[in-house]
Design a binder for these strands. Structure first.
Lengths: 212, 212
DNA sequence: TTATATTCGTCACCAACTGACGAATATAAG
DNA sequence: CTTATATTCGTCAGTTGGTGACGAATATAA
C-alpha cells in the first residue's frame, strides 16, 4: 500500500514487521530467553547481524507498537478540551489510545504477556516507559504552569503509567474482558485517590464489545 | 561486631560490602556501562567468576539496600494502626522506611542517581520494583478483603511506587532537600487524586534535618 | 593426621551486541 | 551499455555479561 516507489540500492531481505511476527511466534512457543536472535534471523532468511539492523536489541521487538502508542497519546492529549480536569483528560486520552481492532487483540495480548509476566523482561523497559510517562508529565506541566521535570507533573506521569500497567496485567491474566474497562477503572480510582469506597469489585467483563 | 565465630573452610577473599564500595566508585568515575565486571573484581583482588558469587549480576550491586528496604516496608505496614485510612498508612510507612542517617545519604544519592538517570539502568529494575509493589499490594489486599493480584491492590502498589520514584528523581536532581519531604508531598497528592488544587509549588527544603 | 566444609581460580562455553569491510544488488547518470 | 552511487547484506573478529564444571587452596573438626 504505502509503496515507496522503489529506491536505489539492494532491496531489504525482510521487514521489521516480518521479523516481529516470527519473533513473537518463537517467544510464545519456546519462551523469550530460550529463543536466540540467531533463530529469529535464520527463520527470516537473514543474518544475525542484520537482525540488529532492524531492531536495537532482542527485547526491542516487544516494544514496537508501544512506541507508536506513545505518539498517539501525545496527539490525543494535545487535542483535549481545555476545560477538562487534568486527571479526567488523561484518563480519557489513555483509554482512547487503547482501542484496538479485534483482529489486533491476540497479538497485543501476547506482547503484553511477554512484557509483563516473563522473568527478565526488565530489559529495556524503563527506556520506553519513560517516554510514555514524559508525555503525560509534559501535558500536566503545560496545564498547571510548572516545568515538566518538577515533582507533580513527574509524579502524575509515573503514577498514571503505573495504574495502566496494573490494568494491563489484570487484563492479561483474565483474558476475558475489554482492556479499556480495566484502564478506566484503574484511572478512575486513581483520580479518587484510591479512597476505600472505590475498592469495589473487579470490573466485570460484559462480553467483548467491538471498538468503532 | 557481628563476628560469626569463624567457620570452617577457606575464608572469603573480600566481602559484598567491599565489592559494593569499589563498584559504586568505579561507576561514578567512569559510568556504569564503561565499567566491566573484570575491573571491579580485579580491584577487589578476586576473579570475575567470584564476583558473580557475591552478586547475581552487575546491576544487582545497585540494588543491595533497596532489597533490604522492601523488607522494612513490609514490617512497617504490618504494624500500622488498623484504623488508619489505607493511603495514609502507606504514605506514613514509606516515609518512615526512608529515613536515613546523614552519613549514609551521599552513597544513597549516588546509588539512586545511577539507577534513575543512567541509560541502560533499566536492567533488572522491574524485578526489584515488583517486590516493592507487591508489599503494598498485599497490604491493600488484606485491608480491603480482595486478592493481592486483583486490580485495585495491584494498582495501588504500582502507583505508589511510581509516585515514590518521581519523588526520588526530584530529590536526586535538586540534591538539597530532605528526601521525605518529596515523598510525603507526592503521596499526599496521590491520596488527593492529583486534583488541581494540590498542584502548588515544589516542596521546599527547610535545610537538612537530622533523623533520629 | 585425616576428613570435611567453604571459597577460590581457571577454563571452556554461550548469547547479546558492535565495528569494519567488502560483496551483492538495485537505480540513476553518463 | 557502462559506470557511478546508494543501500542492504553476510562474514568475521572481538568485547562483555553470565554460567557450569572441576580441581586447588585453606580453614576447622574429628
Amino acid at each position: 500500500m504505502t509503496e515507496s516507489v522503489s529506491r536505489r540500492g539492494r532491496p531489504p531481505g525482510t521487514s521489521r514487521r516480518q521479523l516481529e511476527r516470527i519473533a513473537l511466534r518463537l517467544f510464545a512457543e519456546h519462551g523469550f530467553d530460550e529463543t536466540t536472535v540467531d533463530q529469529i534471523a535464520t527463520e527470516a532468511g537473514i543474518n544475525k547481524r542484520s537482525f540488529f539492523r532492524y531492531f536495537d536489541s532482542k527485547a526491542a521487538v516487544l516494544w514496537g507498537s508501544f512506541d507508536a502508542e506513545v505518539d498517539a497519546l501525545r496527539k490525543e492529549l494535545a487535542s483535549a478540551p481545555p476545560g477538562t480536569p487534568v486527571m479526567e483528560a488523561i484518563r480519557k486520552a489513555v483509554v482512547a489510545v487503547n482501542h484496538y481492532r479485534a483482529e489486533d487483540v491476540p497479538e497485543l495480548r501476547a506482547r503484553m504477556k511477554l512484557i509483563g509476566s516473563l522473568p527478565g523482561l526488565n530489559l529495556g523497559a524503563a527506556k520506553h516507559y519513560d517516554a510514555w510517562e514524559r508525555v503525560v508529565s509534559e501535558y500536566v506541566a503545560q496545564r498547571v504552569g510548572q516545568p515538566a521535570d518538577s515533582l507533580y507533573p513527574l509524579a502524575v506521569g509515573r503514577v498514571t503509567l503505573a495504574a495502566c500497567r496494573a490494568a494491563y496485567e489484570r487484563w492479561v491474566a483474565r483474558a476475558d474482558a475489554n482492556l479499556t474497562v480495566y484502564l478506566d477503572a484503574a484511572l478512575l480510582a486513581l483520580a479518587a485517590g484510591f479512597a476505600e469506597h472505590t475498592f469495589t469489585e473487579e470490573p466485570m467483563p460484559r462480553r467483548h464489545h467491538a471498538t468503532p
